[in-house]
Simulated scan of single mutants.
Amino acid sequence: MSPAIQRQAASSGSGSDTDPRYANVDERKRKRMISNRESARRSRMRKQKQVEDLVKETTQLQKENAQLGQQIEVSGLRFREIDSANNIMRAQAMELTDRLRSLNSVLEVVEAVSGFAVDIPEIPDCMLEPWKLPCPTMQLPIIASAAAGDALKY
């Protein structure tokens, strides 16, 4: 080969495999390529781990959300039960207050007809206005039995 052709081949890069000047460049290129591949692999692994972590977190949050939903449902049910019982108690308190007024009227009639002095108790304000609690004048025992519910019926 003529020297001009050799220079052209050397400058075109086809002879870089045999030229010791370019061996160092090829080695650096190969190392950079390996390093880039490793970096890309680590990046893919990081991304995969992030996705897995997000999936776990999503699953956990959905589980917590379902539990909170159940707690809200149970609390709502308990509220409705207590509200219903409260409404029943209000109605019973009004009924008992009316009965007490009626009995006091009967006692007034008995007092007027018989001439005997009858002690007619005043209706406490807490019976007339149950929202103004506590009621210090009323010291009635609370009966907690099934028979107590029957005693309030006519």
Rank of each mutant, 00 (worst) to 15 (best):
F116M: 08
E27S: 07
I82C: 08
V74G: 02
D17T: 12
W131G: 15
R41D: 06
P20W: 00
I34R: 02
E129L: 11
T59H: 07
R21S: 11
S35T: 08
V51L: 03
K47M: 04
L96E: 13
A66P: 00
P20K: 00
I34N: 01
A9S: 10
S35L: 01
S114P: 02
K31C: 01
N86L: 15
N36K: 09
S75D: 10
I5A: 06
T59E: 09
N24I: 11
D150Y: 12
Q67E: 12
K29C: 04
S12K: 03
G76M: 09
R42H: 03
R80M: 08
R46F: 03
G76K: 10
E129G: 06
A91L: 13
L128D: 09
E64R: 10
R41S: 07
I120F: 00
L103V: 12
R90Y: 15
K153H: 06
S75W: 06
P121N: 01
C135I: 04
L152W: 04
P141C: 04
P141V: 05
M45H: 10
E81K: 12
S114D: 05
I5P: 00
I5S: 03
A117M: 05
M138I: 15
V55P: 00
I5Y: 04
L61Y: 12
S43E: 10
I142K: 03
I120H: 00
S145K: 04
R37S: 05
A40L: 07
Q70N: 12
R46I: 02
D150K: 14
A148T: 11
E52N: 11
L140S: 08
V118K: 00
S16L: 02
E73A: 14
Q67I: 12
M89T: 15
A112I: 05
R41C: 02
R37Y: 03
R101T: 08
A144H: 12
I72R: 07
E81F: 07
S11I: 05
S43I: 02
V113D: 06
D150N: 11
D150Q: 14
R78P: 00
E122W: 02
Q60C: 06
A147W: 04
V51E: 05
S102P: 00
